[in-house]
Nucleic acid binder design. Structure first.
Length: 480
RNA sequence: GCCCCCUUCGUCUAUCGGUUAGGACGCCAGGUUUUCAACCUGGAAAGAGGAGUUCGAUUCUCCUAGGGGGUACCA
């Protein structure tokens, strides 16, 4: 499992390193995107490392969800994924090394003692909690029957400085960092140790991750120094907040990327939205993947947290929908159907002919839809069979007056010889003119009669896609 | 509590000492479409507060306030 350091010692290597305790959330997706972009921009590689050191909280489902999410977003990692727990031996080896160098020691402090230290640190206004009680103590003092943890012997004086590509120079006084645990009493490594060892062994040159790791970076830098390993270039990107400025919660975006797919967003749109969230390139808003790769740079990332804005995402999504191929959109919408709620799932969706009709209607639909769901909703009329169910608003629209209008429209429509867009429009407009009605007065009931709904749709498109017979039949259903 | 980071229109952001502080989303008004949506034009809308440095601060420094992150035998 251990990679050949030689083959990886050159060039840019980034990594996305999620802990498999849940889905790939939006913040993780952006971190992955940044890592991917930076690797691509520099002809490097992005590795995937599953941080499953905490076996109890890691699940296979989470690993699948993360990989699916990355794939859907088009962020393919290089090579096989690494599993952190599989490198436990190597981690233990490094811990031994640190012990041998006198840069680590066994600590037998009890939970009670630790709790006391925490209290006094708090009371005295100190940042570091652990007081180093076993740091220089004679191992002969070790109590019987207690498995010790292993602590890193951190420097007591001076500063630890990190040159972060995003955050700038981060200086932390060493007195504020205590001796952290690098191996648990059962011998397993803890995160900060494992990360350092793995990043080093994998040849990671650039660590791009959430700003919640900023403090860890200082501690990791100390470990790198103790091991005399070269420190990777750090970039800590600000966290994403909810629309109310508070921490991301389920209400505003802390969803798995699969949820965004289900909501009908396109990967390209989400990518575009995510890359602009905290990063910018002048006044540019729309980026092709190639442009993102060309322009992406670490210092361009802002230092302040950004709020997640669904409305802007929708706008971007509408843009990408408008510029997508009709067949592609129909296929994407179709793939979505199984996971949709009853409300949005079109009837008779297993009928191939209906999807062909939807594709036919797509030029009109994609102009006015912000999500694939909206395409499905607005295009529902091709799936429904007669007699149509009316939604409440549409039903209300079809009063006596409206029915009279529809009745009057039958004759001119029947007279249409070639069922083309132009002729249909001519017939409808001609009728409206003759009856001295605004087009809206005709279009609204027509829309209701043909689609059963009042959702936005171009009425000439609807007539055309439905075909003469079906359209007339639906109108007659309402006139009677 | 302590440590670290952040603060330009409602939101995402541009600006890298001198600008009428620009763009995008959203919003408002008008236009176009004798339908919905789309589209076009115009508009309102910002440097958290206070001290410095400077001929000149949104930009540099400090303080305050507010927000975020960390402070685990989680990652």
């Amino acid at each position: 499992m251990s990679p050949d350091p030689k083959s990886m010692s050159e060039g840019v290597v980034t990594r996305f390193a999620p802990s498999p305790t849940g889905f790939l959330h939006i913040g993780g997706a952006r971190t992955a995107l940044f890592n991917w972009l930076y690797a691509k921009a520099n002809g490097g590689k992005m590795m995937l490392r599953i941080e499953d050191t905490d076996r109890k909280r890691s699940t296979g489902e989470a690993i699948d969800a993360i990989m699916d999410g990355l794939s859907w977003l088009g962020l393919e990692w290089d090579g096989d994924p690494f599993y952190q727990h599989a490198m436990a031996e190597r981690h233990a080896e490094v811990v031994e090394q640190l012990l041998a160098r006198g840069r680590a020691y066994k600590c037998y402090a009890t939970p009670e003692e630790l709790e006391k230290m925490r209290e006094s640190a708090h009371a005295e206004g100190r940042s570091a909690v652990y007081d180093g009680m076993w740091r220089d103590r004679d191992p002969a003092d070790a109590p019987d029957g207690v498995d010790p943890v292993i602590r890193f012997k951190a420097p007591n004086d001076g500063d630890t400085v990190i040159e972060d590509q995003v955050q700038g120079t981060i200086t932390v006084a060493n007195k504020d960092l205590d001796d952290l645990i690098i191996a648990r009493s059962d011998g397993t490594p803890t995160y900060n140790l494992a990360v350092v060892v793995d990043d080093h062994d994998m040849g990671v040159s650039h660590v791009i991750r959430g700003a919640d790791h900023l403090t860890n970076a200082s501690r990791q830098a100390q470990i790198y120094a103790a091991l005399e390993w070269e420190t990777p270039v750090f970039s800590h990107v600000p966290l994403i907040h909810g629309s109310d400025g508070a921490k991301l919660s389920k209400r505003h975006g802390a969803l798995g990327v699969d949820a965004y797919r289900t909501m009908g967003y396109l990967p390209a749109a989400l990518r575009n939205y995510l890359v602009r969230l905290g990063w910018s390139h002048g006044d540019d808003e729309i980026f092709s993947t190639a442009q993102m790769i060309e322009w992406f740079d670490l210092p361009g990332i802002g230092r302040s947290p950004a709020r997640f804005d669904f409305v802007k995402l929708e706008n971007l999504n509408a843009h990408y929908i408008k510029n997508s191929d009709d067949t592609v959109l129909a296929d994407l919408a179709r793939a979505l159907v199984p996971e949709l709620s009853e409300e949005h799932r079109p009837p008779n969706w297993d009928d191939e002919a209906n999807w062909e009709k939807l594709t036919l209607a797509m030029p009109g639909l994609k102009e006015r839809s912000k999500t694939l769901i909206e395409i499905l909703d607005a295009g529902r009329f091709v799936f429904v069979s007669r007699p149509l169910d009316m939604d409440e608003k549409a039903g209300k629209l079809l009063d006596d007056e409206a029915r009279a209008v529809l009745g009057g429209l039958l004759e001119p429509l029947e007279a249409v010889e070639e069922w083309s867009g132009e002729q249909i429009e001519e017939a409808v407009r001609g009728y409206a003119d003759k009856a001295e009605l605004k087009l809206g007065k005709v279009a609204q009931p027509l829309r209701a009669a043909l689609t059963g709904r009042t959702t936005s749709s171009g009425i000439f498109d609807v007539l055309f896609v439905l075909g003469k017979n079906e359209a007339l039949a639906r109108i007659r259903d309402r006139v009677r």
